[in-house]
């Protein structure tokens, strides 16, 4: 499968971000996007997710058989907004997203990220890093084949960063697509670096 981005032109309100941006996102080749603050990395991810309409350009998805298909329902995105509810417990948040994505409740990820002991605690009591982990778990359990991760390592301790890296590698090895924006140096096999 692959995602082709052709001559993308993005603006945010009156602010010009970039134009004529083209690249290819392919299986087994994670794409790492780098750029200065405000260069449009997050907007690019939101645009691929269909949350921000580009001024011009096209985004085309080809499945494993080379057929052109709709892809928005195959995407999952982790951005600056964590999409977790402070009034609910960790477990209730996970249960909601599992039901939303029609997936079985999987507590393995909670254990991996050492959140299993906090399952019945209100999310409002978690630290920023723990909230970030919970938000990433939402992406990992969704079973979607295109992951768009905006600064996934920010706020995570070293141990959690390694777990995230392993989960990303597993996703890559399954031949699924992944696009990451990051200011830090992430090292994956066959990774492609793009500066915007």
């Amino acid at each position: 499968m692959k995602l082709v981005i052709n001559n993308l032109h993005l603006e945010l309100g009156d602010k010009f971000l970039f134009k004529n941006l083209s690249f290819l996102l392919e299986s087994h080749k994670p794409l790492i996007i780098k750029g200065l603050n405000g260069s449009g990395k997050t907007s690019l991810l939101r645009s691929i997710c269909g949350l921000l309409k580009p001024v011009s350009g096209e985004i085309i998805f080809f499945n494993d058989n080379g057929e052109k298909k709709d892809y928005l329902h195959l995407c999952n995105y982790s951005g600056h907004k964590l999409a977790i509810k402070n009034d609910l417990t960790v477990q209730e948040n996970i249960r909601f997203w599992c039901s939303f994505y029609k997936k079985e409740i999987n507590n393995d990820l909670l254990s991996k990220f050492k959140l299993d002991n906090l399952a019945d605690i209100s999310v409002s009591l978690l630290s920023a890093g723990q909230m970030k982990k919970l938000s990433l778990i939402r992406v990992f359990l969704s079973g979607k084949c295109i992951w768009l991760l905006d600064e996934p390592m920010v706020g995570l301790d070293i141990e959690s960063q390694l777990i995230v890296k392993k989960l990303i590698e597993k996703h890559i090895n399954l031949g699924k697509l992944i696009l990451i924006t990051s200011h830090t140096d992430l090292l994956f096999d066959n990774q492609i670096l793009l500066n915007i």
Binding site: C49, H73, Y77, L82, N86
Partner: peptide
């Protein structure tokens, strides 16, 4: 809208 959940409801 504020916590970002709306994005996933629109996307998914």
């Amino acid at each position: 809208y504020m916590d970002g959940s709306m994005d996933f409801m629109i996307m998914d």
